[in-house]
Deep mutational scan, measured.
Amino acid sequence: SEHYTFDGEEQAIRFMRDMEAKNLKYELQIHNGKYIIQVD
């Protein structure tokens, strides 16, 4: 699995939509205002 970190919500949402379009599962965590997305 890989981790991707985003500072902004818009970037994170765009990335998650992209993952959904590719049928990839992901998990979102928010730490200290950063959006951390783990992709299986």
Rank of each mutant, 00 (worst) to 15 (best):
E20K: 05
I30V: 11
N23C: 06
D18A: 11
R17F: 08
I13C: 06
G8Y: 15
A12P: 00
L28W: 09
I36K: 04
M16C: 09
K22L: 13
A21W: 08
T5L: 09
I36A: 03
Q11F: 06
A21M: 11
R14G: 08
S1N: 11
K22S: 08
Y26K: 00
D40F: 15
D40V: 14
M19P: 01
K25W: 10
K34R: 08
Y26H: 03
N32C: 09
L24A: 06
G33P: 00
E27W: 12
E9L: 14
K22V: 06
L28S: 03
R17E: 13
G33N: 06
F15P: 02
N32Y: 06
H3Y: 15
G33I: 01
N32Q: 09
G8T: 15
V39S: 03
Q11V: 06
R17T: 09
A12M: 04
Y4T: 03
D40I: 15
Q38G: 05
R14H: 10
D40M: 15
Q38I: 15
F6T: 01
G33V: 01
L28Y: 10
A12D: 01
Q38M: 14
R14L: 12
I30L: 07
V39Q: 03
I36Q: 05
N32F: 06
D18V: 07
Y4W: 10
D7R: 03
F15R: 00
H31R: 12
K22W: 07
N23L: 06
E27M: 11
A21G: 08
F6I: 03
Q29N: 09
R17H: 12
A21P: 02
N32I: 03
K25L: 07
Y35S: 00
A21E: 11
L24I: 14
R17M: 14
N23M: 08
E9D: 04
R17W: 09
Y4H: 08
N23T: 04
T5A: 08
V39F: 07
D18C: 12
H3D: 06
Q11K: 06
T5R: 06
M16E: 02
R17I: 11
D18K: 07
A21Y: 09
I13T: 09
L28T: 04
I13Q: 11
A21H: 08
F15E: 02
N23W: 04
E2N: 14
K34L: 11
I37G: 01
A12Y: 05
Y4P: 02
G8M: 13
Y26G: 04
Q11N: 08
M19V: 06
Y4G: 01
K22E: 06
D7P: 05
K22I: 08
Q29C: 11
G8W: 13
I37E: 00
F15Q: 02
N32P: 02
R17G: 06
V39Y: 04
H31S: 11
Y26N: 01
Y35T: 01
E20L: 06
Q38H: 14
Q11Y: 06
E10L: 07
G33W: 01
K22F: 07
Y26F: 11
M19T: 04
V39I: 10
G33F: 03
F15T: 02
I30R: 05
Y4E: 02
I37P: 00
L28G: 01
A21F: 09
K22M: 13
E10V: 06
A12T: 02
K25T: 09
K34A: 05
V39H: 03
H3L: 14
Y4F: 11
I37V: 13
Y35V: 03
L24F: 09
K34N: 05
E10S: 06
D18T: 06
F6A: 01
Y26I: 07
V39L: 09
A21I: 09
E2F: 15
Q29H: 13
M19Q: 05
R14V: 10
E2M: 15
R14E: 15
K25M: 07
Q11M: 09
R17N: 11
N32A: 08
H31Y: 11
M16N: 01
G33Q: 04
E9Q: 08
I36D: 03
E20M: 07
Q38R: 15
D7G: 04
E2L: 14
E2T: 14
E2I: 15
E27T: 15
D7H: 07
R17A: 13
K25A: 09
E2R: 14
Q38E: 08
E20W: 05
M19W: 04
Y35E: 00
K34F: 10
D18N: 06
G8H: 15
I36E: 05
D40S: 13
I30C: 11
S1F: 13
K25R: 11
D40N: 13
D7E: 11
Q11H: 08
Q38W: 15
Q29V: 13
Y35W: 14
A12I: 02
I36F: 10
Q29L: 13
I36N: 04
A21N: 10
I13R: 10
H31C: 11
Y4V: 06
M16H: 01
H3P: 09
G8V: 14
Y4I: 07
R14I: 12
A12H: 00
M19F: 04
T5G: 03
I13M: 12
F15D: 02
E20R: 04
Q29F: 14
L28F: 11
R14Q: 14
N32K: 07
M16T: 03
H3G: 07
Q38C: 12
K34V: 12
D40T: 14
Y26Q: 01
E10N: 04
E2P: 11
L24Y: 08
T5Y: 12
L24H: 07
K25F: 08
F15K: 02
N32M: 08
R14T: 10
E10M: 06
R14C: 13
H3R: 14
Y4R: 04
E9N: 03
K25I: 07
